[in-house]
Every structure is written in C-alpha cells, then in structure tokens.
C-alpha cells in the first residue's frame, strides 16, 4: 500500500445529470493528489462512449426544475426527452459548468483510472471500439482490490 491517498468510485448512471458527480469528485480528488479509480458499470458505460450522447428525461423525476409545470402525460410525449436534454445542456453552459466531455478529458489527463465493467460491456453488446481508448476492462474482483486499499469508496 502506497502513502498516496486513494478513492474508488462505482458509477452506474448514464444520464446527463448523473454523469457529473463521479467526474467532479474524481477530478477534484486528483487535484488533491489522490489516486482515483472509477468503475463504470451498467448505464454508467454511456459516459465512456467515444460519441457521448447523454440525455435526460423529465419522466419519473418530479424534482427536475422545469420552466413550466407539465402533466406527466405531456412529459411522455415524443420529443420531451430531447427538449429536457437541450434545456439542461443550455443551463449547464450558461452557468459555466464544464461539459461531461471536458471533465472526462481532465480526469484522463490527471491519470484517473477508468475501468469498464466487462460483464456489462458484453451485456449491452458494446464494442471496445465504441468506448474511449485508455480505459481498462475488468470485473468486480479488480474493483475490490482498488476499493480495499482506498481511503474513500463511493457508489453513485
């Protein structure tokens, strides 16, 4: 075990909003000289795609602020997901929040380890060519090894 502090994160979510917490914490921890691993599994794999296309749905999320309150039936209409995604992207940009792509790049630059869960890569028929380079492919055992040495472990 090294003297350097470390953090291990499991990231299971693949929506535009939930892509942020693991990347914000990982880049910040790296700036504080932590060794960081993020284990992307299930929908989290969306964040590792070369062609990022993260979306957001107002459906089933009454906490999402909307400019006008819409009945659930209206939220389920075609195009609503696209609208919510565009609104969130505009809001993020307007407030000076980094894009997911930029944060991911910064994480890679600061040597954050990205580990794609092999089982879910196969489950969803991802090809390695669809995901960014410089990531590792492994299973739960590899995460346990990183987590057992970590000062901080998080599940998101």
């Amino acid at each position: 075990m090294s003297e350097q502090k470390s953090m291990a994160i499991i990231a299971t979510q693949g929506t535009l909003d939930w892509a942020y917490p693991p990347l914000i914490l990982a880049t910040t921890a790296a700036a504080l000289d932590y060794e960081v691993s993020i284990f992307y599994t299930f929908y989290g794999l969306q964040v590792l795609r070369k062609n990022l296309d993260l979306r957001l749905s107002p459906l089933g999320n009454p906490a999402m602020p909307m400019p006008v309150s819409l009945p659930v039936l209206v939220q389920s209409l075609p195009g609503m997901e696209k609208m919510a995604t565009i609104m969130m992207r505009n809001k993020l940009a307007k407030k000076g929040v980094a894009s997911v792509a930029d944060l991911r790049e910064m994480a890679l630059e600061s040597d954050v380890r990205f580990i794609a869960c092999q089982m879910t890569v196969d489950l969803f028929d991802f090809k390695q060519s669809q995901l960014i380079d410089d990531i590792e492919y492994a299973g739960a055992t590899a995460f346990m090894e990183a987590a057992s040495d970590a000062d901080i472990t998080l599940y998101t």
Partner: peptide
C-alpha cells in the same frame, strides 16, 4: 471568473 466547481480548483492546481 465565470467558472464553477470544480474548475477553479482544477485550474489552480
């Protein structure tokens, strides 16, 4: 200026 968490810290680092 104009940047939000975590960018000011990352840039400072």
């Amino acid at each position: 200026k104009g940047l939000t968490c975590p960018l000011p810290i990352l840039r400072a680092k």
